[in-house]
Amino acid sequence: MIKFDAVSKRYPGGQEALSQISFQLAQGELAFLTGHSGAGKSTLLKLIMLMERASSGQVFVNGQNLNRLSRRQLPFFRRNIGLVFQDHQLLFDRSVFENVALPLQVAGYDSRDAARRVRAALDKVGLLQKENQNPIRLSGGEQQRVGIARAVVNKPALLLADEPTGNLDPQLSAEIMRLFEEFNRVGVSMLIASHDLSLIASLEHRILSLEKGRMIRGATETSAGDL
């Protein structure tokens, strides 16, 4: 699903955020990405979303070489990836329903079809009864679940999460992780960046560790599966 081939990222100013990263994430695999802050977790996710481009090396997502993806193709590429943020990035000028519907609206879905999918996604995260509320009135854990519903509403093949439990207490964090595992069980590939080591250690998934821009653990482990 994801393949990094000797990828380095240097920001203007000479600071090297990632150096010579190589790893693969199999189709349907769930892996955690850890490391202290500044180790390059976010940069790595940004390279996959094409929010940044690699300085050298090649990134493949679903068989596509991202170096060859033009600006025009970018939106269509992003529609196949769900993204969950630490600060959930919800829009407070619209309801929960409208927040979750956004990716479908953007992709030009029929509104009835979209409504069905939005409700299904909200149902999965347990917030169906709050669809008409403004997300600003929800608790932190609920807001994060709305963010997850938005990330999966389009049924993406790949889901990326950047510190999805960073602002939540341990119990809510565990709930969110269980939610991710559920989606993973139905075949969604996932890469979850987190520094909550005790939480991810309790879950039995592959762990990729970054330190100062280098991958020090997990890169060579690959589980069986189509890449």
């Binding site: 269509f76 590429f77 529609r79 953007v106």
Partner: peptide, 10 residues
Amino acid sequence: VVVKLVGGTD
């Protein structure tokens, strides 16, 4: 930003 991230075209 959010719309661009979920695949909104220019």
